[in-house]
Design a protein around this nucleic acid. Sequence first.
DNA 1: AACGACACCTGACACCTGTCACCTGAAATC
DNA 2: GATTTCAGGTGACAGGTGTCAGGTGTCGTT
Lengths: 201, 201
Amino acid sequence: MIRILIAEDQRMLASALTSLLNLEPDIRVLDCVSDGEAALARLQLGDIDVVLSDIEMPKMSGLELAARIKDAGNIACKVVIVTAFARAGFLRRALDAGVKAYLLKDAPSEKLADVIRTVHRGGRYIAPELLSDTWSEACPLSARERSVLALAGEGLSSEQIGAKLHLSTGTVRNYLSEAIGKMDAANRIEAHRLARERGWL
Amino acid sequence: MIRILIAEDQRMLASALTSLLNLEPDIRVLDCVSDGEAALARLQLGDIDVVLSDIEMPKMSGLELAARIKDAGNIACKVVIVTAFARAGFLRRALDAGVKAYLLKDAPSEKLADVIRTVHRGGRYIAPELLSDTWSEACPLSARERSVLALAGEGLSSEQIGAKLHLSTGTVRNYLSEAIGKMDAANRIEAHRLARERGWL
DNA sequence: AACGACACCTGACACCTGTCACCTGAAATC
DNA sequence: GATTTCAGGTGACAGGTGTCAGGTGTCGTT
């Protein structure tokens, strides 16, 4: 019997998947939680074989959850990411965090039980859409460039960004200029959009 | 027996809802489609009582689907919108298009069957999160302001926007200035973000 | 000790943005 | 026919943005 924890903030999907998976004779969903923190807490009981996790959740993302599980070392469960968005950076970070499977929400749902069994046997699975070259290119942005670009995308001015990050206005503009150049964009807005689309923020 | 069509591009959710709803004795899911056009075509058979539709789908959105059904006049089915985002403009447009129920994907899934029955009896249902004042305020932006703001959000300069919309650069800046003022934002980026969050784009 | 890599800062320049007062011409209203 | 209304435009101004050529101090390397 494979014991599952579902971490998913769309309750409708979570409960639907629960009833779907519980129809499988060898799978049992023990619990559903709606954010990463709750998932981490629930895992301490040690009775979970596979965590099914969304990425975008309140409090703690699925990627951070996976990283925490890896760092903790004492939690035996495997992590399966189920997400709506096919973003390169997400897959990369997921793999770095030791995630065993990464699949998309528009995959046929019969796939899910298969993937869970594969992972439980020690296997791996990556959504085929994500295996092309486009998706695997590394993020060229430095940590500073990323954080500056993220704030710029909220509409903050260079001065406001500098105040938040304890940098001078000129430095912020230099980082933004670098980022814009690397992304081959015309301005901060386009650079932010492109970086988001590629999962680099 | 209430006959259902599901229009939802996340196949995983669509099939999970199907199996969930088919457990109800008085509900039967006849078909699943993954975009608005396919839904409209399927409805021509005339055997559907209630359409369960997402908003964000390829080809034709759920809101446009609802509007088309209303305009056609000869299709008897009720429309239930099930969406992830709580955006004011969406709800408004949905109600204008004669939608009978509007609920969020993070509602408990038991709610779904209840809402379907309510709608089938001739009732209505709106997600309680959307009934507060914030969500029901009307969009203050003119059509021009909206389109200019949408392009500005892509990273286009005022000049490029003017070229696309056959307006002078100065006029584009005037519209943007108006929009920024109405949204109480500091610049075009923040104005675009706020407008998107409120479903006005 | 000398070296380069790195993070951060400065100043200057051309250009873009946001704002405002005001103009124009074509409806619509009176 | 005169007046208002409104989409669109112009020109000017302060301030923000993007770029570049430098500058400082701190690391590890060699």
